[in-house]
Amino acid sequence: MKETYKKYIKVVIGLIVAYAVFQILFQTGMINSYYNRIIRQIGIFLISALGLNLILGFTGQFTLGHAAFMSIGAYTSAILTRNFGVPFLLALIAAAFTAAVLAIIIGYPILRLTGDYLAICTLGFGEIVKVFIQNVDYLGGARGISGIENKSGFTVIFVLAALCFAIIMNLIHHSSKGRAILSVKEDEIAAQAMGINTTKYKIIAFAIGCGMAGLAGGLFAHFSQFIDPKSFDFSKSFELMTYVVLGGMGSLSGTVIGTSILIALPEWLRGLSDVVKEYRMLIYAIMLVSMMLFRPQGIMGTKEITVAGLKNFFGKIKRIFRSSSTSVNKGKEA
């Protein structure tokens, strides 16, 4: 028990240090407001992508309607803060809760499907949500909602992203429920035979993942200050999926890397030159296909970046250097 607490304290200290470093960089102006915005954007989509990784990577359920849950969260929180004056944090909780409850209601019937059929079903669900919002006047219809207060600061996003990461990490790697969820991915029939209620665990994972999408949606609404149904269509779901796939399905640190690369890269390419700017989406597509052809498991596979792993990695590099220098010396002697 003591060991675990020690570990938690170390993690918290690490997070505080990281947060302090970011804040110092912001305050001193080393990261300007443009990069600050990109970093916040990465944080928001990271929360959503982590949720998607729980569903797609850890539970193995192929969903293409993740953006719809983001839109549900975004609309819930925007309506609450704008029309009812609910405090921001409360609205965020409501956003996550609404998305999760809806995920349970939707997930109960459709999670019986598998593979392609589930993908198409969730895609259809996403379109239904979009069309529904477009046709309800109270939600702004196709015009969307504008004039949402800008409240998603770096602190909120950082804390929530870290929290979501920790929730999934603990759920998957340190609980019996996590093992059950992983077993659903590995072999559903075998899991059932071992007495695991697979439907229950699929729904749990789906609800948590979609709740995170709702949370990210709430943050996004108060970040971009404008939301419309079109910005959450299935191309957004595809985009979220590419973040997860690039990083590696089943690796949380991979998701962090994937999301950061795929949001920062287009911004960076935009700055390079006009030619690259025109072709950046093309580059993105080629990258996705070649990734699937040559490294389908993503950057990290199912591995995580850990302190021990990093130590091991640098130790190896050191050893390689040492052995190469000694071999060079030996060569000289000979």
């Binding site: 797609l56 192929f62 392609d116 993908a119 595809f238 999926m241 590419t242 796939v245 399905m249 989406m281 993105y284 597509a285 080629i286 996705l288 296909v289 990734m291 699937m292 052809l293 389908p296």
Partner: peptide, 12 residues
């Protein structure tokens, strides 16, 4: 999943 994602990549 790999194949489905590839088709989406080709689509993009």
């Amino acid at each position: 999943e790999t194949l489905l994602i590839t088709t989406i990549g080709v689509e993009l």
